[in-house]
Amino acid sequence: MLINILITFLLITNIGAVASSRLTYCIKIVAAQGVVIGILPCLIYGEFALLPIVIAIFTITVKGVIFPLLLGWSLKTAQVAREVEPLVSYPFSIITAVLIFILSFWLGSRLSLPASFCGYLLVPVAFSTIMTGLFLIVSRVKALTQVLGYLIMENGIYAFGVALLREQPLLVELGVLLDMFVAVFVMGIAIFHISREFDHIDTHVLDNLSDRIPADIRPTEET
């Protein structure tokens, strides 16, 4: 029961991330997702054991505390305008999120899954989280929002992986988390540099490199 409540919460946060127009709010949503996803392994594992607790503590620290702090820091130092600036309108984004949600439930109902998955909404919600993350990456202008989309996508993959906990060794989980930690760290630094070079973190200024524009008229310095 508790598991299903948590999973539903995950679903609501997806819609919230798509619908919100403020970056700080988006970061908080991703942090909340990180905490929910951190608790999941303990509940799914059923019994009291060291392995899921270690993973849970680690996940909550990294995804729920460190990532939001890092992203908040880069938001502050880069002095970004606090709006999300979507490429598609908010109503359309919400409709897309709902469509993604329906699609993933249809997909989830057609899959044959091992016994450990059954009875949970986990798989469809995980799929919808992954696709929502992908949608955020392609539909938002700011580099920071793209990182948030990447994190939401990773959360979805992690939620799917949680159900496989018994088969996956601890080392792999830790490695995945470590990689993500470094990835977000490096991305945060990159955002800092982007804001310093271009005065803002909109990715549409990153279009100097392409094959179409001939060399003579290619703009070399853009502000």
Binding site: M153, M187, A190, I194, L209
Partner: peptide, 28 residues
């Protein structure tokens, strides 16, 4: 450390990270 290399790095980082995240799903 100029604009062009920064653009290349950002594309590399984001596109490859998303790609590799999909590979993680494949592993699962």
């Amino acid at each position: 450390r100029n604009k062009r290399s920064l653009e290349a790095t950002w594309k590399y980082l984001l596109i490859c990270s998303v790609g590799i995240a999909l590979a993680l799903l494949g592993n699962l």
